[in-house]
Amino acid sequence: MRAGHGRRHQGAGRLKASGGTIRTGAEVDQVLIRNGKAKGVVLAGGEEIYGKLVISNADVKRTFLKLVEEKELPDIFLRRVRNFKIRGSSGKVNIALDSLPEFPALPKDSPAYRADMHFTDSIERMERAYDDRKAGRWSADPFLDMMIPTTLDPTMAPPGKHFMSCFVQYAPPKIDGRDWTDADRDGFAESVIAQVAQYSPGFRDRIVHMEVRTPREIEAEVGLTEGNIFQGELTFDQLLFNRPVPGYAQYRSPVGGLYMCGSSTHPGGGVMGAPGRNAAAEILRDLAKPTLHMSPAHDVI
């Protein structure tokens, strides 16, 4: 797809066309609650914005442990939110390249250059990468989900230059129980570059610039707690009627008028929009408004 995930801007356009307003640079600090009902939000700058409904697209931990005061929530709900597992496990390395890397193992002009590439040739290698993660380290020999999007869409880089996107596993939210340091981040990047260079001679010389995102950066930049890209682990105990927490799997929360619509909710993460769509349907139901205008969705499960 050309423009990559930029297509979400089309969604933004549609929101505006439907009469919505988007404000950027408007970090929410708190959800305003009066008598157990959400009345609006307070922005980081102190501005108060009132609304009939508040729908949080932030993860369940961020929403209920940071934006909502403890006293507004039942103990059992708080306990379950605290127990929600949202440990990050991946990182991202975006690499600007001077020229297209070569992979001698591929025939020249192989369509694989435009494909999703992996170097992981055995399950044992993946498993060992996970052992490092369990021990609180990034994987010394990570597995990469690697693409060169400029082979499909040359407009993403200056003429002749390329961009490589590496999704990397595993990267824990903390290193040996402490926060990531810049040196850790560089070590993590090096494990990625070293692996690519093993399969692509001269790779290091082509690197013009690199952007490294460990769970630390992901949390700081995107606001995902512990850098978990799915806003919560997709294990059985956190799926279906247990997502995000038992008793609140239907986008509602213990606070009246406060809803959840992010990947922390059913069915989970990935760029699919299903949690948002389902949340909208539930909200319309609570408002006793019709949902006929919603286009049909595919069943997820």
Binding site: F236, D237, F241, N242, P246
Partner: peptide, 14 residues
């Protein structure tokens, strides 16, 4: 009971 049953179902395959 409702809450305990919910926890039972949550932790079953943990």
């Amino acid at each position: 009971g409702k809450e305990d049953m919910r926890d039972f179902l949550r932790v079953l395959l943990m």
